[in-house]
Simulated assay, not measured.
Amino acid sequence: MNIGDIQLGQRPVLLAPMEDVTDESFRLICKEQGADFTYTEFVSADALIRNIAATTRKLKIRPAERPAAIQIYGRDTQSMVEAARIVEQAQPDVIDINFGCPVKKVAGKGAGAGMLRDIPKMLEITSAVVKAVNIPVTVKTRTGWDADHRLIATLAEQLQDCGIKALTVHGRTRAQMYTGWADWEMIARVKENPRLTIPLIGNGDITTGQEAREAFDRYGVDGVMVGRASIGAPWIFRSMKAAITGEDEPMITDAEKFAILRRQITESIERIDEYRGILHIRRHLAASPLFKGIANFRDTRIAMLRASTYDELSAILNQVEEQLSTQEIKRNPTTTQQI
């Protein structure tokens, strides 16, 4: 699969853009774990034009994580064009336009998935951004505003006509938010359109390697995008890539997983500061499947999510890792060593 001249190989797995999640540290770790392409957190066009520091920081891309995209959103054509030109100076490989965010503070103001209620404006913005920059432009959107207005089959072709180089479709409507199931049959119908020649990336409910492989085999997409399943578990990309290529399931030890989480904590603190860095990383810790199945874990989880210093959080993780190790020994007792 190619996005313009950018080659991603066969059956690529992409890390979805997620606000307060896909910071530069997390993206690089996911890349090291097998993600073929990464996206920044979405960037507000208005905030970028106003040179808001918290927004401009999101434009940094490390060489080791490339190829990567910076995603922008907004509701005004001129603002989106100006933001795209600013983003181009940061030299991403791709500029992605967010027409899919369903949250009220974005969609309710007409940006993100809110554009699904104003298709002419969506197409106007897309065409203008494509013409304004000299790097590939892509779009991420949903199947429609609600169940009565699932228009993605027609919209995909219209967006292609605007000059985008790839399209990502999340298989839910805006009304669904993140509830229910993603409609992969709808995504497949988009792919079946013989007039659609740009790559189609499917997104929604991909949580295992088997599901990723099925997305390619059954629905025919060119790429698969993984979002929430990667939070607190960036190693999931190793498992997915193995399943897609038919390789054996990789052995990823708990020690490796703890090391990755500790690295995220450290780099989050280095990037911001101790207190805010820990606040930022709590979402990853809260979502991590590493802690599932641990007996009487509720109080430990609360303590972990209330920790405000690195030393405090590190001590809790050490305790949890030791507890997991003890449980593993009990499940798999070794024979007594002969003297």
Rank of each mutant, 00 (worst) to 15 (best):
M1P: 10
D5A: 15
L8H: 07
Q10K: 12
R11A: 06
R11Y: 05
V13A: 07
D20K: 04
R27E: 05
C30F: 12
K31R: 15
Q33L: 14
G34Q: 10
A35H: 11
D36N: 15
T40P: 00
E41D: 02
E41I: 01
F42E: 08
S44K: 06
D46N: 13
L48I: 01
I49K: 06
I49W: 05
I49C: 04
I52A: 14
A54W: 01
T56L: 08
L59W: 02
I61P: 05
E65I: 03
R66E: 09
P67I: 02
A68V: 14
A68K: 12
A69K: 08
Q71S: 04
Q71I: 01
Y73C: 03
Y73R: 00
D76C: 04
T77K: 10
M80E: 02
E82W: 13
R85Y: 08
R85L: 07
I86Q: 14
V87I: 15
A90F: 03
Q91T: 11
V94H: 10
I95E: 13
D96P: 03
I97S: 06
I97E: 07
G100K: 08
P102L: 02
A107D: 04
K109P: 00
G112S: 06
A113G: 13
G114H: 10
L116A: 05
I119S: 08
E124V: 01
N134M: 11
A147Q: 10
A147W: 01
D148E: 10
R150H: 01
R150Y: 01
L151F: 01
I152T: 05
I152P: 04
A153I: 13
L155R: 06
Q160K: 09
G163R: 09
K165C: 09
K165S: 13
A166L: 05
L167S: 05
L167T: 01
G171I: 03
A175M: 09
M177Y: 11
Y178V: 05
G180Q: 05
G180I: 07
G180L: 06
W184A: 00
A188Q: 14
A188L: 00
N193T: 03
N203T: 07
G209F: 00
F216I: 00
G220M: 11
D222H: 13
V226C: 07
I231P: 05
G232C: 02
W235S: 02
W235G: 03
R238Q: 14
M240R: 03
A242C: 11
E247S: 11
M251R: 11
T253M: 04
E256P: 09
F258G: 09
F258I: 05
A259R: 15
I260C: 03
I265G: 06
I269V: 15
I272L: 12
R276E: 08
L279Y: 08
I281S: 09
H284A: 05
F291R: 03
N296Y: 10
F297T: 00
F297D: 03
A303C: 02
S308V: 14
N318C: 11
Q319D: 15
E322C: 11
Q323A: 14
T326A: 14
Q327E: 13
E328Q: 13
T334L: 14
T334P: 01
T335D: 13
Q338D: 08
I339D: 07
